[in-house]
């Protein structure tokens, strides 16, 4: 691990930022200088100052505190979505690959292909538009579009691995299908899944922010970076800092996860490395 980080400075930077972000998300209530929903109408739209380093928004709320609390929403949604999509995707995709035959045809040709017929975020927008806004629905919508990627990946991996000799050996020794899948196949497909999960964190954070930007995410007053950007849009002329700081937080976070994912992929698969 240390060798990997020493060789990949960008990945190391990414890891540091992700670490800082996790700390910010967990300890937001202690780190934030103000109540993220506390309004000081006298300070509305004021720019950055010593008192409010990121300035205030249109209701006089402290943007630094809101950015810190916003990281909670981003990390909570992204972690849940990646975990759920990962587990569901690996199970369903792995099963399709392992069992083959009709189960595989049904899962790949019918379920996965029809979900992929919608451009990614559109299906999430559609689901949230009809289900109504809320944290649980947001996560549900993102898992529905998210698990497919893991399923496709694990199906392909399982198809490759299940023909290898050590799997045959396990089968010859009388191991059950469940045991072969969980003890022999799963540990061998976990690496590419981790790469996908790292990039998936970036994608989930972006998707949550997109939906919140459109007003389809978590309802106010819970601070979310996407919703903060949407609030700032109507004050581009008089308070550009309202857009600037949430943007920086969002871009740095997504970039960090992408750096990590890219470096992990290059590390695990030397063929694609630079």
């Amino acid at each position: 691990m240390t060798e990997f980080l020493r060789a990949n400075k960008l990945a190391a930077a990414g890891l540091i930022i992700v670490g800082a972000l996790t700390i910010a998300a967990v300890f937001a209530p202690w780190l934030a200088p103000y109540d993220p929903a506390g309004q000081e109408l006298a300070d509305r739209l004021t720019g950055p100052s010593w008192k409010h380093p990121f300035g205030n928004d249109e209701l006089g709320r402290d943007i630094l505190s809101r950015v810190l609390y916003g990281s909670r929403v981003s990390m909570l949604v992204a972690t849940t979505v990646v975990l759920l999509s990962g587990v569901i995707g690996v199970l369903i995709g792995g099963l399709a690959g392992y069992l083959g035959g009709k189960v595989d045809t049904f899962i790949t040709a019918v379920v996965i292909n029809s979900l992929l017929a919608f451009p990614g975020i559109l299906l999430a927008i559609a689901l949230v538009a009809f289900l109504g806004p809320g944290l649980d629905r947001l996560i549900f919508a993102l898992v529905i579009i998210g698990w497919v990627g893991y399923a496709r990946l694990s199906r392909g991996q399982v198809l490759q691995i299940k023909t290898l000799e050590f799997v045959e050996a396990a089968r010859a020794l009388g191991a059950s299908g469940l045991r072969i899948f969980s003890y022999h196949i799963l540990p061998n497909i976990i690496q590419p899944i981790l790469v996908q999960a790292s990039i998936g964190m970036a994608a989930a954070i972006l998707a949550e922010a997109s939906l919140s930007f459109l007003g389809l995410g978590i309802p106010p007053p819970t601070p979310s970076w996407g919703a903060m950007l949407n609030d700032g849009r109507s004050h581009l002329f008089d308070a550009p800092h309202m857009v600037l700081f949430p943007s920086i937080a969002l871009v740095m976070t997504v970039l960090s996860f992408n750096f990590l994912g890219d470096a992990l992929r290059d590390w695990l698969d030397p063929k694609t490395s630079k």
């Binding site: 972006l206 997109s210 930007f213 581009l236 943007s247 969002l250 871009v251 997504v254 970039l255």
Partner: peptide
Amino acid sequence: SLPNFALGPM
């Protein structure tokens, strides 16, 4: 990593 709703306003 730069979403269109951050790039656009910038």
